[in-house]
């Protein structure tokens, strides 16, 4: 019985390692799975390569504060990176 449990734990660990190795890639399949409001922001970042919330808001015609919220959500989800340069925060896809 104990042997069985050990094998199950090992298998679980192996599965975890495999899922950690898969990067959060912002490809079209991911874009399709995102909620509508985040998809628009994600496509805009893909187009601009890197941008501030201001620049994304200009493209999507939504408020800067709204875009800032969506961009940070995409950072938390692991799809985008955020970097401060002086007073501005830039969002980009790590390639």
């Amino acid at each position: 019985m104990n042997e069985k449990i050990d094998v199950m734990i090992e298998l679980q660990k192996h599965d975890q390692k495999e899922s950690e190795a898969v990067p959060d890639v912002l490809d079209v399949m991911t874009l399709l799975s995102l909620p509508d409001h985040l998809r628009k922001t994600a496509v805009t970042i893909s187009r601009l390569d890197q941008a501030t919330a201001d620049e994304v808001a200009e493209q999507t015609r939504r408020a800067r504060a709204v875009e800032s919220g969506y961009l940070n959500q995409l950072v938390i989800m692991g799809y985008l990176k955020k970097e401060r340069r002086g007073r501005k925060a830039y969002f980009f896809i790590e390639k």
């Binding site: 890639v25 912002l26 490809d27 079209v28 893909s46 390639k95």
Partner: peptide
Amino acid sequence: DRKWEMKALG
């Protein structure tokens, strides 16, 4: 792979 497809989209 997916990473390449992401770059291709860009």
